[in-house]
Amino acid sequence: MQLASNAVPGDEPREFETLAWLVRGLPSKTIALRMGLEDITVRKYVSHLLAHFNLRRRTELIVMLADKAIKLGVPPITDPAHDRSPSAVGQQRAD
């Protein structure tokens, strides 16, 4: 079963992306770096997700999704450092 991004409350695309990274076991700080956000913002998204599903812990959220066989797909790469990598810069110059 695939979870649609509109099944996530609030700032849907970003919370959905947060959830996709969360189920891969990444801590909030790492998710924040990959998404180009502050750690507090990611923690707020996680809090919204937990409240939406009436859960208290991140682990409960991950287990719930696994129990229901919900797949989130691959989160998009929004890491600002990834966008500035030498290979990305070289590709942009070649175009």
Rank of each mutant, 00 (worst) to 15 (best):
A66G: 04
S28W: 01
A20N: 00
I70E: 09
L19Q: 01
M1T: 15
K29N: 14
L33W: 09
K44N: 11
G25C: 02
A7R: 09
P76Q: 11
S85C: 12
Q92I: 13
L49I: 00
E12C: 12
G73H: 04
I62F: 00
V42I: 06
L61E: 03
R84P: 01
A51P: 04
K44V: 06
T41N: 03
S87K: 13
T41K: 06
R93F: 10
F53I: 02
H52S: 09
L72Q: 01
L49N: 04
D39K: 11
R24Y: 05
G10F: 02
E12K: 08
M35I: 07
E17L: 09
K71D: 13
I62N: 00
M64N: 06
R14S: 14
E17C: 10
P75S: 08
L65R: 01
K29S: 14
S5L: 10
D39Y: 09
K71C: 11
Q2I: 14
E60M: 02
H52T: 01
P86D: 02
D83I: 08
G73P: 02
E17M: 13
D11E: 12
G10E: 00
K71H: 14
M64T: 04
E17I: 10
T18A: 08
K71T: 14
D67N: 15
T41C: 03
S5A: 11
A81K: 15
V42G: 04
V89G: 00
M35Y: 04
I77A: 11
H48M: 04
R57L: 14
I77W: 00
D83L: 14
D39M: 06
L65A: 07
Q2Y: 14
T41M: 07
T59V: 14
S28Y: 03
S28G: 09
L49R: 04
G36V: 05
G90F: 01
G25M: 03
L37I: 06
L55V: 07
L55S: 03
T41D: 04
G73E: 03
S28I: 03
T18S: 06
R24D: 06
A32P: 05
E15Y: 08
V8Q: 04
